[in-house]
């Protein structure tokens, strides 16, 4: 286990050490401490590393993650796991806005709540939020799955493409072209699997499914805006 104290080392030094594992993979486990909410911690990882971060992190922690398993034992700032491609990012506390933005793959787990625009423009990742998500979550989300065990704020799934959204609690309002859809057996199985991967005991049957009505996919000549 490699331990990096960010009171003694810079984020640049940390990230370079983690990136170096791509070419010389000899240290799979890393412990990061004294984070002080610094930005861009553990971003751009591309190796099967296990990175445990003790403390709160700032913007874009684990951004563009590939393969690595990153756990934040604290809260995360804006854009955690943005554009993640694969691997797992687990935030033990709350996450700010744009969690998992544009992420193509992998699994993002938030034990607490997230701010606005969780999963905005997501492109294939899975996100499980054990608490609530803020307004405009899954705005223009293209693919993948968002699971919300708590409540969702206003305009959920606005201008949604093919992302599937499951919410257990109350949805304050649905965004343009986002509609409730039947929770079929297939979806229950998918949801059950995701909840299990996030290590929650939630009952899948208590959730509602939301998706795109696909009415905004093409311009309508007499009704385009």
């Amino acid at each position: 286990m490699q331990s990096i104290n960010l009171a003694e080392h810079s984020v640049r030094q940390l990230n370079q050490l983690l990136h170096d594992q791509y070419h010389h993979f000899d240290q799979p486990q890393w412990q990061v401490s004294a984070t002080s909410g610094q930005h861009n911690i553990a971003c751009g990882l591309n190796q099967k590393l296990e990175v445990n971060i003790d403390g709160h992190v700032g913007y874009f922690c684990a951004g563009m993650n590939q393969l690595a398993h990153v756990t934040v034992h604290g809260n995360a700032g804006q854009g955690v796991a943005e554009n993640m491609m694969s691997g797992t990012v687990h935030v033990k506390g709350d996450a700010s806005s744009a969690a998992g933005a544009t992420a193509h793959g992998g699994l993002l787990i938030i034990d607490g709540n997230t701010g606005a625009r969780c999963g905005i423009s997501m492109k294939g990742c899975d996100i499980v939020v054990k608490g609530n998500v803020g307004h405009m979550s899954c705005f223009m989300a293209q693919a993948g799955t968002l699971v919300v065990c708590g409540d969702a704020g206003e305009a959920l799934g606005d201008s949604l493409y093919e992302t599937v959204i499951y919410v257990k609690g109350k949805v304050q309002s649905l965004g343009a072209d986002c509609v409730e859809k039947p929770l079929t057996k297939k979806h229950l199985m998918q949801l059950k699997k995701l909840l299990k991967s996030a290590d929650t005991e939630e009952d899948p049957s208590q959730f509602k499914r939301y998706g795109s009505a696909r009415q905004l996919y093409n311009f309508k000549v007499d009704n385009a805006y």
């Binding site: 984020v11 990230n15 930005h39 861009n40 751009g44 913007y59 874009f60 563009m64």
Partner: peptide
Amino acid sequence: IKIQELREITDW
């Protein structure tokens, strides 16, 4: 911060 992130990912 976004620029710094991109620099970090590409090692400056």
